[in-house]
Design a protein around this nucleic acid. Structure first.
Lengths: 211, 211
DNA sequence: GAGATTTCTTGACAAGTGTCAAACAAAGTC
DNA sequence: GACTTTGTTTGACACTTGTCAAGAAATCTC
C-alpha cells in the first residue's frame, strides 16, 4: 500500500528508488503509529518514534520534512486500513441478524484488538480542532467512516425491508458517539465495555430504520 | 461559585486566608481555561497561562503543586459551570415542543458562544485516555453530563406521555456524538453547523421515546 | 575496482518546557 | 517601631523538543 499521496515529494532519486523511499516511509509510519497509539499525539516526540523503531532520529528527517508531515502521512496511511473494515460483512450477510452480529462482532473485535489506534484517532480528531494542518486529513477520514456506516445502515435497511430514517452524517455521529464512549471507557473498565457496546448498538440500530 | 472541592473546610470569617487563596486559584483557573480553550491541552504551557493573566509564572506554582494539579483544578471548576446549563429549560417547559426548542436553542447557543470550552472538553477527554491522572475528573464530568441529558430526556418523555427507550448512557452517547460532530465541524464551517445540529437532534429525539 | 550517489549516524543548536529556590515586597502581628 | 507571615518576582536549573548539518557508511554505476 504505497498509494498515500504525499504533500511534498520532489526527491530526485532514480525511478526505482522511489519505491524504496515509499517503503521506508511506510515502515516509519507504521512504527510511528505504534508509538502514537500508545502515547497519544501530545506526548509523542520524533525521538521517541525513532527509539521504538529500527532507525535513528535523523532518518525521520530524511524521509519527512517535519513533524506534521510525518503525522499527516501516518494519518493518511492509517485511513487506508480502517474504513473498509466491515465491507466483507456487508457483502456476505444474507439477513439482518447476520449483518448485525457480524458488524457488532467486528466492531468489538477491533475495539479490543486495536484500542491504541482508536484512541489515537479520537485524539487526532480533537487535535485537529486546534491544529489546522491536521484538518484536511481528519476530515477525509471522517468522510470515509461516515460512508462506511452508511453502507452498513443501507444494507441493514435492505435486509429488513425498510429505509433509513436518518441521513448519513446523523447515523455516523450517533454510532460514532457510542463507539467513542466505548473506547474511552475501555481504558477504565475493559471487561464490561464490549458487551455494553453491543447491547447499546442493538438497541439503537432498529431505531434508525422504518418501513 | 468557589465550591471546588479542596482541603478547605472551615470558614475563615475574614476575607484573608483560605478564602483569598481560593479566589486566586479561581482567577488563575479562569485565565488558564481561556488559554486552554484557545490552544488546547498539548500546546498550553504554564508560562503561556501566566502570560495571558495578570500574574507571573511563579505564582502558578505558588497556588498549584504542578501542572496536572492546575489542569485538574480547572477541569473541576469547569464542570460546576456546564452541567446545569439546561436545568431552567427542563423546569419551565410545559410542552414537549417548548422543551425541545428551549433545549436546542441553549445547545446551539453554547456551541457558538463557548466553542473554546467545548473544544477543550473533547480534547481533555481524549487526553484522559493517555494521562491517567485526568481520568477521575473526566469521568466525573461525563457522569454529570449523562445525568443532564437524562433529565432532559425523562422530562421530554413525560411531556409526550411516553417513556425513554434507551438507558441514560446510551442517550448520552448518542446526543454527545451529535454535539461533538458539531463542535468539530464548527471550526471548519461555522455558519451551517448550528442549523444542522438542530435538525439532526429534532430527528433523533422522538426516536428515543415510545409509548 | 573507483567514483558518485544515496542513505544513515551522530552530534550540535536554539528554543521551550516544568520546576524550584532565593530575593524581594506587602501585610499582618506584637 | 521591629518581626513574622504571606504573597510575588525573578532568574536559574535540568531536561526535552524539532531541526539541521557534517560526515560516515552503504549502495549503485561505470
Amino acid at each position: 500500500m504505497i498509494a498515500v499521496a504525499s504533500a511534498a515529494e520532489e526527491r530526485p532519486a532514480r525511478v526505482s528508488g522511489i519505491d524504496k523511499i515509499e517503503r521506508r516511509r511506510v515502515a516509519l509510519a507504521e512504527s510511528a503509529l505504534k508509538t502514537l497509539g500508545e502515547l497519544g499525539y501530545a506526548r509523542t516526540s520524533l525521538r521517541e518514534i525513532a527509539n521504538n523503531s529500527e532507525f535513528t532520529h535523523g532518518v525521520v528527517h530524511y524521509y519527512f520534512r517535519d513533524k506534521i508531515d510525518l503525522i499527516s502521512y501516518c494519518v493518511r496511511y492509517y485511513k487506508t486500513k480502517c474504513a473498509r473494515r466491515y465491507d466483507e460483512v456487508v457483502e456476505t450477510a444474507t439477513s439482518a441478524d447476520e449483518l448485525a452480529t457480524g458488524f457488532l462482532g467486528k466492531m468489538t473485535q477491533t475495539l479490543v484488538e486495536e484500542t491504541p489506534m482508536h484512541k489515537l484517532w479520537y485524539d487526532l480528531r480533537a487535535q485537529s480542532m486546534f491544529e489546522e494542518q491536521l484538518r484536511p486529513d481528519v476530515e477525509a477520514i471522517d468522510q470515509l467512516l461516515e460512508e462506511m456506516i452508511w453502507r452498513i445502515l443501507s444494507r441493514y435497511a435492505d435486509l429488513t425491508g425498510t429505509t433509513p430514517t436518518v441521513d448519513a452524517p446523523t447515523a455516523y455521529a450517533l454510532i460514532d458517539g457510542l463507539f467513542e464512549q466505548a473506547v474511552v471507557g475501555y481504558a477504565a473498565n475493559p471487561e464490561k465495555v464490549p458487551d455494553l457496546l453491543t447491547g447499546r448498538l442493538l438497541q439503537v440500530l432498529p431505531k434508525l430504520v422504518a418501513p
